[in-house]
Amino acid sequence: MKKNDEIDQMIKEALSEDEKELFNTYDEQSMFQMLGGLFQGKMKWLNAGILIVQFVFFGLAVYCGYRLLSTSDVSEMIPYGVGVMFLLMAIGMLKLFQFMEMHKNATIREIKRLELQVSVLAKSLKKD
Score class of each variant (00 low, 15 high):
residue 89 M to C: 07
residue 115 E to T: 09
residue 94 L to R: 02
residue 8 D to Q: 10
residue 78 I to N: 04
residue 99 F to Y: 14
residue 104 K to T: 06
residue 34 M to R: 04
residue 96 L to Y: 10
residue 76 E to M: 15
residue 22 L to F: 05
residue 14 A to F: 00
residue 102 M to A: 07
residue 2 K to C: 05
residue 55 F to G: 15
residue 68 L to A: 03
residue 79 P to V: 03
residue 109 R to L: 10
residue 52 I to Q: 03
residue 55 F to C: 15
residue 81 G to D: 02
residue 78 I to M: 11
residue 75 S to F: 12
residue 56 V to I: 13
residue 32 F to V: 11
residue 48 A to E: 07
residue 17 E to R: 06
residue 2 K to W: 14
residue 112 K to H: 11
residue 72 S to G: 15
residue 95 K to S: 11
residue 15 L to Y: 06
residue 62 V to A: 06
residue 98 Q to D: 01
residue 91 I to A: 05
residue 91 I to D: 02
residue 112 K to V: 00
residue 64 C to D: 02
residue 42 K to I: 05
residue 1 M to C: 09
residue 39 F to H: 10
residue 79 P to D: 02
residue 22 L to P: 02
residue 3 K to W: 12
residue 110 E to A: 12
residue 18 D to R: 05
residue 107 T to H: 09
residue 121 L to F: 13
residue 119 S to P: 01
residue 123 K to Q: 04
residue 46 L to T: 04
residue 95 K to D: 09
residue 3 K to Y: 14
residue 64 C to Q: 02
residue 38 L to G: 02
residue 19 E to I: 08
residue 59 G to T: 08
residue 5 D to T: 08
residue 18 D to V: 08
residue 58 F to H: 03
residue 41 G to D: 07
residue 72 S to C: 04
residue 7 I to Y: 04
residue 77 M to P: 06
residue 24 N to L: 11
residue 109 R to T: 03
residue 16 S to E: 11
residue 118 V to C: 00
residue 31 M to E: 15
residue 13 E to R: 12
residue 1 M to Q: 08
residue 60 L to S: 02
residue 120 V to S: 05
residue 117 Q to G: 13
residue 65 G to F: 09
residue 77 M to E: 03
residue 125 L to Q: 05
residue 50 I to W: 00
residue 90 A to G: 02
residue 58 F to N: 00
residue 86 F to E: 00
residue 76 E to C: 06
residue 120 V to G: 06
residue 25 T to A: 10
residue 90 A to L: 12
residue 115 E to R: 10
residue 30 S to D: 04
residue 56 V to C: 03
residue 64 C to I: 01
residue 100 M to W: 05
residue 88 L to Q: 01
residue 84 V to A: 03
residue 110 E to C: 00
residue 78 I to F: 12
residue 51 L to A: 07
residue 74 V to P: 00
residue 122 A to L: 14
residue 83 G to L: 11
residue 63 Y to P: 06
residue 53 V to Y: 06
residue 6 E to P: 00
residue 51 L to E: 02
residue 3 K to V: 13
residue 112 K to A: 13
residue 105 N to P: 00
residue 76 E to Y: 14
residue 45 W to Q: 09
residue 5 D to V: 13
residue 77 M to R: 12
residue 93 M to T: 04
residue 26 Y to S: 08
residue 76 E to F: 15
residue 14 A to N: 01
residue 20 K to S: 04
residue 42 K to S: 14
residue 33 Q to D: 12
residue 68 L to N: 02
residue 9 Q to N: 13
residue 3 K to T: 11
residue 80 Y to Q: 08
residue 54 Q to I: 15
residue 39 F to M: 10
